[in-house]
């Protein structure tokens, strides 16, 4: 078990180095620089531009800047935002709970709907139910997030006026953040209507962000279930006289979940990528929106630090999923590495 863990962590190191290079390089490929953007429409003289670049250290060779950045990371220093002058890490932490809250809701939504839908489609294979569930999943999977988000806003917020258009909670409510999770904080605040408001703000972004994972999970569950349903042990379970609910929901599902869990783990990357678009559409103050804003401002330290942290989260979650495997599949419990 420990050998397995060490080997897996060892594999993370090259990935991590790759991510630092990529995050450092890509933002610098964009035309423009932070100084020009800060100056805005007023513009500035070439001399002043030079002087400011020198002040920030952007005049030095790229490899020198990279090495500085790279070694600073190992001292736990991701640099300061050029715009707010705050450390990148604390900027990230301040916005992270909003993204976690949204992503968690989205994945719960996707799992809670996707697994039953996939199971149902598999059990009713070839039926109208199967075709309509899989057709819907394909549409959901193919739908561009920003377009889907705008459609929902137009219909539910614009025409039906059921949900608010943007933000995490109505402006009428104010309370200091305790956990950073609006659903919990609104409950803790004790203000009447705050929780309902937080929920209503959360619904559309959750649906938008959860749609692609929902489609992927439903399709994966269906195919895993179909495979498992023809296994001998399912026949054994039936031969015991067990009710179909138990045969499918216990004997088949437990085995079908093995590949589905991997899929769910891989969706974390999809979720964080999707969060960038979803948060921008719904003005959700999380790291996705922060990343987009930072890119527009050419806030180099924020972009590269933010990307690095997001990549680290994806890697860690995937590692946890690998470890969780053993819980559900006794055949690969990591005994003796």
């Amino acid at each position: 078990m420990i050998a397995f863990l060490l080997r897996r962590i060892g594999l993370l190191i090259p990935t991590f180095i790759g991510v630092t290079i990529a995050s450092f390089g890509f933002i610098r490929l964009l035309p423009g620089d932070p100084v020009l953007l800060m100056a805005g429409e007023r513009g500035l003289t070439p001399e002043r531009h030079e002087a400011l670049l020198k002040q920030f250290g952007f005049d030095r060779p790229l490899w020198e800047q990279f090495l500085d950045y790279f070694f600073a990371i190992f001292q736990g220093d991701l640099g300061q935002s050029l715009v707010t002058k705050e450390p990148v890490f604390s900027e990230f932490l301040a916005r992270f709970p909003a993204t976690i809250e949204l992503s968690l809701c989205a994945i719960i939504f996707a799992v809670a709907l996707g697994i039953p839908a996939g199971m149902f489609a598999a059990v009713k294979r070839g039926s109208t139910y199967d075709h309509s569930i899989m057709g819907t999943a394909l549409v959901g999977y193919s739908m561009p997030i920003f377009w889907w988000g705008l459609l929902l806003i137009i219909f539910f917020s614009g025409i039906l006026k059921w949900t608010p258009v943007s933000g995490r909670i109505s402006l009428m409510f104010f309370f200091p953040p305790v956990t950073g999770f609006m659903l919990i904080d609104s409950l803790l605040s004790g203000q009447k209507g705050a929780f309902t408001s937080a929920v209503s703000h959360l619904i559309l972004p959750t649906v938008v962000l959860g749609t692609i994972p929902l489609a992927v999970i439903a399709r994966q569950t269906r195919s895993a279930m179909l495979e498992v349903l023809s296994e001998d042990y399912v026949r054994t379970a039936k031969a015991k006289g067990l009710a179909p609910v138990r045969v499918i929901g216990v004997h088949a599902l437990r085995n079908a979940l093995i590949p589905v869990i991997t899929t769910i783990g891989l969706q974390v990357g999809v979720l964080l990528a999707g969060a960038i678009l979803t948060e921008t559409i719904f003005s959700w103050p999380g790291i996705g929106k922060w990343m987009v804003d930072s890119i527009f401002r050419r806030d180099y330290p924020s972009v590269q630090g933010g990307l690095l942290l997001i990549a680290a989260i994806v890697m860690i979650v995937n590692l946890i999923v690998d470890l969780m495997y053993g819980l559900i599949n006794p055949r690969i419990r990591h005994t003796g590495g």
Binding site: T236, I328, R331
Partner: peptide, 8 residues
């Protein structure tokens, strides 16, 4: 081998 459920 395949008639028994591997997960239980």
């Amino acid at each position: 081998m395949s008639s028994l459920n591997p997960c239980f």
